[in-house]
């Protein structure tokens, strides 16, 4: 995106002298600010509205009409009973556990395997390196949706259908993770590692003790995105997990919706529970999220 960085010439206009035109401008600026906030509040309502409505529905008791006209955002007698009921209707805690296992495993493998591969590609010279890297980049544009039939066949061949390992393995490493880690290692000065090697540290020790700690920022980006991707993934777990006992949260929620569409309070409670972990993660790690979007977008 180097094209955007060119600096246009500065306007050489004295700004200290207030002219009538500028006073008019001030009034316009004030009106502009007001208009800006009005627009922002409208977008805010459209963004938050559906979440708020879901929370409200989940808190309404069985005695309260959820189709009341006009709709009531604040429940008459708020109750947490739906949250207990949804766990009786479907194995919600199990789904939460399955999603946690899959997403955590995917996060760890993307960080570790991605860092190892990225380190080798950035720091070691070996025959076939450029060809290998080119192959990775060339296939980067092929999305999962294109190859899902064959991924399903491979997974079936390995006997991993209906297992969490099957849900996790195809996501265990992504080319994007390798790419981000390679860039991170390329940006590091070599001297520190070479000093360590002269001191007699082995390849692995140098990578583990010197390399990894220096790329913590990029590791965080890979970790957040792998976790979020695995946690939110729907199509692959839908394909690979057949037995309702083994569902992850996203597949489980859709299962809940299909089974209990007549009882929206339950669906709402399940949905709210499923948002909380990622939302908490986001609130704590906002800056990495925003940084990560920039990185992923430029490379994806």
């Amino acid at each position: 995106m180097s094209a955007t960085t060119r600096q246009p010439p500065k306007a050489g206009r004295p700004r200290s002298v207030a002219s009538p035109a500028q006073r008019g401008t001030k009034a316009r600026v004030a009106a502009g600010i007001g208009g800006r906030y009005v627009l922002l509040l409208v977008v805010l309502a459209v963004t938050v509205g559906p979440f708020a409505w879901q929370v409200s529905t989940s808190l309404k008791g069985l005695g309260e009409n959820i189709f009341a006209f006009p709709p009531q955002l604040v429940p008459d007698e708020p109750t947490l009973r739906n949250y207990a009921r949804v766990a009786e209707a479907i194995p919600l805690w199990r789904y939460l556990g399955n999603s946690t296992i899959v997403a955590t495993a995917v996060t760890l493998t993307n960080c570790l395997f991605g860092a190892m591969a990225g380190y080798a590609l950035a720091r070691m010279r070996f025959r076939g390196r450029n060809a290998l890297f080119a192959a990775m980049i060339a296939t980067l544009i092929i999305p999962f949706e294109v190859i899902m039939i064959s991924v399903f066949l491979v997974t079936r061949g390995l006997g991993l259908i209906n297992t969490l390992a099957g849900a996790m393995l195809p996501l265990a490493i992504s080319v994007l993770s390798i790419f981000i880690m390679r860039q991170a290692f390329l940006a590091l000065p070599r001297e520190v590692e070479e000093a360590a090697r002269v001191d007699g540290a082995g390849e692995w020790q140098t990578f583990w003790r010197i390399g990894l700690p220096s790329v913590r920022g990029s590791l965080a980006v890979v970790a957040i995105f792998s976790f979020m991707f695995a946690w939110d993934d729907f199509l692959w777990p839908l394909i690979v997990l057949r037995d309702p006992q083994n569902f992850t949260l996203t597949v489980g929620l859709v299962f809940l919706e299909n089974q209990f569409s007549a009882d929206q309070r339950l669906v709402a409670a399940g949905t709210v529970i499923s948002i909380i972990p990622v939302l908490a993660l986001f609130v704590f790690l906002q800056r990495q999220f925003f940084r990560g979007v920039g990185q992923a977008a430029v490379k994806g």
Partner: peptide, 9 residues
């Protein structure tokens, strides 16, 4: 925030 919630949600 809608980005953080899954598409299923």
């Amino acid at each position: 925030s809608p980005v953080v919630a899954s598409m299923v949600v």
